[in-house]
Each structure stands twice: as C-alpha cells, then as structure tokens.
Amino acid sequence: MTPTVAVLSLKGGVGKSTVTLGLAGAAWARDLSVLVVDCDPQANATLSMDPAPFTFTLNDVLADGRPGIARDAIVPSGWGARVHVLPSEEALAHRDSAHDVASPARLRLSLTGVGDDYDLVLLDCPPALGQLTRNSLGAADLALVVTEPGFFALRGAAQAIQAIEAARGSINLGLKPAGIVVNRMRPNLNEHQYRLRELKAAYPHLLLEPIVPERSAVQQAQGAGLPVQAWPSPGARDVTEAFDDLLDALLAHAP
C-alpha cells in the first residue's frame, strides 16, 4: 500500500515545504514515483517543483470533491517524469474556512485511487489547524511533524502532535505519527542544542534521526526549481544524506 504522509507543524517557517521537497527529492534520487499534494495556499512547494503550466489546483479539486477527481489536476513536475505535483494557488485559502470544506474526508475522497499510481504521496500542510490541515490528516496514513530547534517551533510541534492524536480519535482512525523531524539545526548554537535536548526528553520515541542541518543550498535549489539532491554543493550533500536517511525512517513506518 502506498504511504500517504502529511507533513505538518502548527508554526510557520519551520520548513514543512523544505522537508516535503527534501523527501520528494530523496524519492526522486531513488527513482521512486512520488506525488506532492500542495495543501498550502502559499504554494511554495508548487513553485519549487517547477511544474509545466497548469490549469487546475487543489482549490478546484476540493471545491469539486468527487471521488478520484484529484487525478484531473495532477501535473508532472520539472524534476522528472516520476515526480508529480497537485499544485496549489492563493485561492486555496477559500477552502480553509469551515463552511467551505465541510468534511475532513473531502481530500481523502478526491484522492481515491490516486495513490495506487505512486510509491509515495506527500501532503504539504499549511501552518495552521484549519480545514486544509484537517483534510490532510484525514487523508494521510502517516503524519510527520517538522520543527526547528527553537522555543516557538517546539510549541508548534507539540500542538501538531496533539492535533494528530485528536485526528486519530475522530476523523482518521488509521492515522499514525511518523515522528518529528528537526530542521535547520545549527549545532554551534547553544540554544539549538538546548532545545534539541528538550525535544529528546519530551518525545524520546518520536524524534527522528538524523537532524537536518541549516544549509543555504536548500534555498538555492528551491530558487532554481530543482531537488536539493541535484544541487552541486557540499552543503547540499549534507542535506541530501539527511533526507535519504529520513526517507528510510519514514518508509519503515509505512503501513
């Protein structure tokens, strides 16, 4: 069964899209087929995957809501034939209001049968517990929490863990936490080391290794519309190795 993974945090700017793209890139490097569903109206993952010109987005898919309709909006990314994207756009924010996407199962319904075409499906969530994140948790088998080693981010991670637990008890009984990814680590900062220890103490069984280091290659690759795995710099190699190991950890959790 193809794992569908929601990548979330309830704090913005911690690198949800970066982790989504890093994992998609790790899958790309292994020649796995992967679908990235961009559930964030900021559409950063869409931009970075450099898809061919497209007409439809997740906004249209959720507004329609029919089983399997997501297939009509999926386009190949600029990364290669085996990496596809269900694009986002700013107007997707319309779907985040409670009255608009009434059911948290709407995304799951629209993705019916779509996962069979891929080895991995990644859902890049927005940084809030609105209908888009609830729909992502409703559609996923695994929930991956992203944080950076900072006070606010750790609080956002804790809230995300609570949201996963709440979703498991209501909208998606099959949902499992895949773990917590620490992103943008700068080991030379005492504050980062302190927060990492704090995180290990609080979630000893959820913290995933390795920690993703802060590297400017990540932004450079995103700006170029390339997977970081294709970016030729020493920093990119560090990040590539981390995402490759994280993909292994993620697939080990797959149903």
């Binding site: 109206p41 507004a63 009509d72 909006a73 107007a91 700006g223």
Partner: peptide
Amino acid sequence: PALTKSPDAQVHPVSGRSTEDLHLVRSTSF
C-alpha cells in the same frame, strides 16, 4: 464531467480582488 475551475479561483482570499502573479527569477547556477 471534467474538473472545472472553482468560481473563486481568481478572487483574492483577503481583498476579494483579482489575483496577480509575481514573477520571480530562478536561481540559475551554482
């Protein structure tokens, strides 16, 4: 029936006006 564009696709979620794209330049080389 095929998927169609949502009626609010061109409406900005906050301002209610038409949306415009910002065209950014790609990073081209290492």
